[in-house]
């Protein structure tokens, strides 16, 4: 199990950083493979923004003396990562370089759920007791506005399109919901994080999310999902093997020489 840090800001920053880092990685695997060219342009822009957000958090951690941002991003093993299970899941069968058989319905469902959850957290972080976190949240929310618009459009459109699309989306959403048990969790550090007024409590955020997505779920005639207790809690370093594979790919070049300038 992962190390629990004394400072709750560090705990929370790792969760936020690792979430965006992995989510961006999964997005970058899609590059060049999206359903149409316009989507490739939009999706890769979102992916790039999200890597920017991860970078903001890793640099804050660097500022707190946790080590170089690049090192934090690249070489921490899976057991030290604090991202949610949802973002570490692969996009579908196959590796991104050889014969990827990715599932666009899954990409849309995951991105919609992840991005709405991120929106709720970012809004709360704007009033964080930690000044740098609050400032980061203000900046990030400007870009997040467009990400939300983008994924909401896809989510609603595909649910309300052909029967095949609806079936695929229903299946994909089930898969996403099954992995979302730790999405609003702060893991073992939850009470410290909330007590320090860094962000509101898990339950408050979850309730707010449910209210926030309700109108969208009404338009697709699907009940707002409820997330069960997580089988694994990524916030505590409990992960699938898929995460280590992702880390190995992302650090392939960096790890060849940790001291080199790249």
């Amino acid at each position: 199990m992962t190390q629990k840090f004394e400072n709750p800001v560090v705990e929370l920053l790792f969760q936020l950083a690792d979430d965006d880092y992995l989510f961006s990685y999964r997005g970058s695997e899609w590059l060049g493979l999206a359903p149409h060219i316009e989507e490739d342009v939009a999706f890769s822009s979102i992916t790039q923004d999200t890597m920017g957000h991860a970078t903001v958090y890793y640099r804050l951690l660097e500022g707190l003396g946790l080590g170089a941002a690049d090192s934090l991003a690249h070489i921490r093993p899976a057991a030290e990562r604090k991202n949610s299970i949802l973002v570490e899941r692969p996009n579908g069968e196959g590796c991104y370089m050889e014969n990827p058989r990715y599932d666009w319905a899954y990409a849309v469902a995951r991105s919609y759920i992840y991005t709405t959850a991120k929106k709720i957290k970012i809004d709360s972080l704007k009033s964080s007791s930690d000044q740098s976190l609050a400032e980061a949240a203000v900046k990030i929310s400007m870009e997040l506005y467009y990400h939300l618009l983008h994924w909401k459009t896809w989510f609603v459109q595909l649910f309300n399109a052909t029967e095949e699309a609806r079936n695929r989306m229903t299946k994909a959403l089930e898969k996403v919901v099954a992995d979302s048990g730790d999405l609003f969790s702060f893991g073992d550090a939850a009470s410290e994080i909330t007590n320090a007024s860094l962000i509101e409590s898990e339950q408050v955020l979850l309730n707010r999310w449910t209210e926030y997505v309700k109108p969208v779920f009404e338009t697709i005639k699907v009940a707002v999902p409820t997330f069960g207790k997580p089988e694994r809690n990524g916030r505590n370093g409990e992960h699938t093997n898929e995460l280590q594979d992702a880390i190995d790919t992302m650090s392939e070049v960096y790890a060849t020489d940790l001291a080199a300038a790249w």
Binding site: S28, E29, V41, S44, Q48, A54, T55, D70, M250, W262
Partner: peptide, 18 residues
């Protein structure tokens, strides 16, 4: 793109391919 060796390089090559 995923293998770019630093955060800065990752951002750069993502922007480029986009």
């Amino acid at each position: 793109v995923p293998k770019a060796p630093t955060l800065y390089r990752k951002l750069g090559i993502m922007a480029k391919v986009q």
